[in-house]
Amino acid sequence: MAILVDEKTKVLVQGVTGRQGMFHTRSMIKYGTQVVAGVTPGKGGQRVDGVPVYDSVAEAVEKHPEINTSMVMVPAPYAADAVLESLDAGLRLVVVITEHVPVHDAMKFIRYSSYRNAHIVGPNCPGVITPEASKVGIMPGHIFKRGSVGIVSRSGTLTYEIAYAITSSGMGQSTCVGIGGDPVVGLDFIEVLEMFRRDAETEKVVLIGEIGGDLEERAAEYIRKTGYPKPVVGYIAGRTAPPEKRMGHAGAIISLGAGDPDSKVRALNEAGVSVASTPNEVVKLLKAV
């Protein structure tokens, strides 16, 4: 089972001819992901690691109607247009890796995706991986192992750290979803938790949050109110971050009366979620729940 991506995922890479686009296309193919086509306007007719490149998403989808997922790696000023293009071509999952996408652009394409019955993951995210099946993202595949722990996270490398700790302990992951470090992202904690709830393969969930906003508090409220049936372990990064300073991620800032880490930990604890104070402790807590 797993969620969002699996063996049947057929990927289109937007921005496939860029340096990052080429690198990660190769790495995804090596991992076993079915990368069917790429798009870069003006570069149609080329090939990247054997993957045919088209000028537009419409052309790519016409030639390869099996495409069901797009991964966007185009530069931030053009990212919104790329997402809209995929949504209009009827794709149901668009994973936006690009960092520095303007928040007004994100609000627009995220709202639009809901009218197209599609999901957006990101922007500013590492992507989604279902170990040993498919990765649509930029994470190092070898640290993941198929198993029963679902991970949902606002971070990239921190997710790898925790996923690796889980793998090293002998457990594995069903699917890992990096929802992105921006203030406004497509799928959020609640939506991914809901998917994990319905996924038979996922037995436990790890929620990796960080300072900024109140998505963690909202997730805690959802867990409490719905009597979430699967054990959840949390981790919150940035407990030592000063207020009013953006800690790398656009969304990681304690500001305008929100985003304080203690409030997140408190809310999660009140919802029955144990919150680890180190990445390794996540494993201990997972074993205990």
């Binding site: 490398t157 921190l158 470090g181 953006r246």
Partner: peptide, 27 residues
């Protein structure tokens, strides 16, 4: 991206989440 704090352990990490987690761990 850097933010100055008042301690004496310099921190370099890759990725915002991991770098924050590194600070938290040192503390």
């Amino acid at each position: 991206t850097a933010v100055e704090l008042d301690g004496d352990v310099g921190i370099i990490g890759n990725g915002a989440g991991l770098t924050m987690a590194t600070m938290d761990m040192v503390k």
